[in-house]
Nucleic acid binder design. Sequence first.
DNA 1: GATGAATGAGGGTTCATTCAT
DNA 2: GATGAATGAACCCTCATTCAT
Lengths: 182, 182, 182, 182
Amino acid sequence: MTTKAKRRYEPDRRDRIIDSALDVIAQYGVAGTTHRRVAEAADVPLGAMTYYFKGMEELLQEAFARLADTMSSQLRTTLEAVKTKEQARQAIIDWACSEMWKSKRNLILAFELTAFAAREPSLRPQLERWMGISEGYLSQHFGKSTAKVLDAFVDGVVMHNIMSSNHITRDEVTEFVQKLTA
Amino acid sequence: MTTKAKRRYEPDRRDRIIDSALDVIAQYGVAGTTHRRVAEAADVPLGAMTYYFKGMEELLQEAFARLADTMSSQLRTTLEAVKTKEQARQAIIDWACSEMWKSKRNLILAFELTAFAAREPSLRPQLERWMGISEGYLSQHFGKSTAKVLDAFVDGVVMHNIMSSNHITRDEVTEFVQKLTA
Amino acid sequence: MTTKAKRRYEPDRRDRIIDSALDVIAQYGVAGTTHRRVAEAADVPLGAMTYYFKGMEELLQEAFARLADTMSSQLRTTLEAVKTKEQARQAIIDWACSEMWKSKRNLILAFELTAFAAREPSLRPQLERWMGISEGYLSQHFGKSTAKVLDAFVDGVVMHNIMSSNHITRDEVTEFVQKLTA
Amino acid sequence: MTTKAKRRYEPDRRDRIIDSALDVIAQYGVAGTTHRRVAEAADVPLGAMTYYFKGMEELLQEAFARLADTMSSQLRTTLEAVKTKEQARQAIIDWACSEMWKSKRNLILAFELTAFAAREPSLRPQLERWMGISEGYLSQHFGKSTAKVLDAFVDGVVMHNIMSSNHITRDEVTEFVQKLTA
DNA sequence: GATGAATGAGGGTTCATTCAT
DNA sequence: GATGAATGAACCCTCATTCAT
C-alpha cells in the first residue's frame, strides 16, 4: 500500500550496485563516491551496501574490475575475428576510433581506474591483462615490437582525442598505422 | 626534543603547501587528499590550509596548475633547443623515455589530474595548453598531422610503459619514430 | 562505573534533544548553542544531532516552535475555562502572575525567541499565532481594543517583573486590570 | 599610492567600532556577530578589535551599554520637560508611539540586549537603571503603583506593536492611559 | 536474509586571539 | 601605538560502518 514497493527476490542486486558505482564514479570521481550516492543510484537501501560488499574498497575494486572486463571483452570482440594482417590493421583502427570513446564516460572511468590501480596493487593484474590483450592478438600478425607499439599508439590516440580538441581523424590514424606496419 | 618550533614569517609557505598537496595526491589520490594530511605533509598548522587557500577546491586547482606548469616547462626545455628535423626526432624520443616517467609519481599525478580536469572545467584550458605544447614545436619540423600523431604516440608510450611491465625500449621508440616521420 | 551504556531504540530521542536544546539556549543563548552542548545535555552522541535534524537551523526552529506551543497551550488552558467577564479578568491576572514567569528560563527563552524570529521569517507565523491567542479569548468578553491592550499590558507586566527588581504585585495588577476593563 | 589609504590619528575609532557592533548585532544577532564582521562594518583592521577591546565579551558589553544609554537619554529627553500631570500623560504616549520603534532595528536590539543581559549580570545595573527612568519621572505625577504600571504598559505596547501585525493605535493608547491615570 | 536507525571518527571551515613587526 | 599574518580550538556536518530487529 505504500508508495515505495518492497523489493525482494532480486537476484542481481549486487550487479546493479556495481554498475551504479561506475556511474557515480564517472560523475563524481572516486573522491566523491559514497555509499549513499551509490545506494541511491542503484535504488537499494543503504544497508545493502555493506551487506553485499565488505566495504567501500571492495566495491571500488569490483567496479573497476568490471570496467576492465567490459572494455577487454569489447576489445576482444573487435579483434578476434581477425584473420589477415589487413583485417588486423582495420580492427585496430576501428578500436582507436570506436564509438566507445565518444562518450567521455568511459575515458573518465579509464583514467580514474588507472590512477586507482596505481595505488591498489590488487587491480594491477587485471589491468595488465587488459593491456596485454591487443598485444596478444596483434603479435599474431606483426612482430612483437610492432604489436607493443601499435597498442601504445592506439592508447595515445584515444587519450589525445579526448583531452584535446585538436582531433586526430580516422584518415590520419589509418595513414600512420600503415606506416607503422609497413 | 623535537618541540614544536614557533613558525612565523616563513615566506613561500604557500608554495610548500602546494608541493605537499601534490605529494599527498600522488600517495592517496584526490579522493584521499585532506586538509589534515596536506598540513602534516607540509608541516604547517591545520588552520593554515584555509588561511592560504579559500578552500580545498582552490588548493587542488593550484596544485594541478603547478603540475601542468612543471611538466610543460620540462617539455619545453627538451624541445626548444631543437633546430633540425633530426633533433626534433631525438627530442621527442628523449621525452618519451625521460627520467620523469621513471618515478610513478608524475604519471599518477597526470592521471589524477586528467580525471579531475574532466570534471573541473576550470582546469581544461591549462590541460589543453599543456597538451598543445609538443604539437606546437613538432609542427615546425613535420606536418600538422605528423605532429599530432607523434604527440599521441609519445603519450601512449609513456602510459604503456608505466601501466604494463612489457616495456617499450628506447630502440623500439626510435625505430617507430623514424617510420612515422619518414 | 558509569560506563557508556549502549543506547539504541530509544523512542522520543528527538523530543529529548529539542528539550535539551531549549535548556541550552536558556543557559547560553542562541549564540552559545552548539551541537556539542545540546548533545551532551541530551546525553546523545554528537552524530545524532544531524541525524535527527537536517542542521542547526532546523533544530532551533523546532525548539522555538515547541516553546511557542508549550506557552500557547498553557495560556489556552488558563483562558479556555472562562465563561464570564469576571473570570476573564481573573484569568488574565493569573497569567500575568503565573508561576511560569517565576523562573527566568521561560522569559529568557521568550526573548531569545523573539529576537531570533525577527531574523527568521519562517518563525513569524508561529509567533503571531501565539500573540494572537489571548486576544482571541479576551475579545469574547471585552471590546477588541480592550483585548489588544490587556494583552499588551500583561506582556509588559511580565517583562517588567523579570527585568526590574521593583516588582508589580498581584494586587496592583488586579487594580489596573479593573480600571482597564471598567 | 595604494588605493587603501592608511588610517591614522583617528580619535574615535573605538566609538565607531561600538556603533558598528550594534549594526552587526541588529543584522545577524549576537550569535552571528564576529570580530571580522564588525571590523569590516567599521572599516578598521581586524587587529584593531582586540586592540581596543579585551575580547568579544567586552565589545558586546560596551555595545549594549551604549544602546541602553542612547535609549535612556532619548526617554529622558521626552520626559524631562514634563511639568504637569497632563504633560506626563502626553509624554508617555509619545514614547509608546515614538518613531524609535518604527524601525525594527531598535526593538531587535532591545530583545537581544535583554536576553544577553539576563546572562551577563554585569549589564543588569544598566538595564535596571534604564527601566527605572520612566518610573522615576512618572512617580512625580502619579502614585508609585501607577508609575510602575504605566511603565510596564508602555513596554507592553511597544512589544506588541512590533511583534504583532494587529497594531494598537495612538488613540487606543491614549484612551487607556487616561483610564490608568484617572 | 535484509534493513535502516544509530554512531563516532574525521571531514572542511571559521574565528577569536596572539604576537612579531 | 597599531597591524595583519598566523594559529589551533571548536564549529557544523558527512559518512562508512555496525547491529538490533
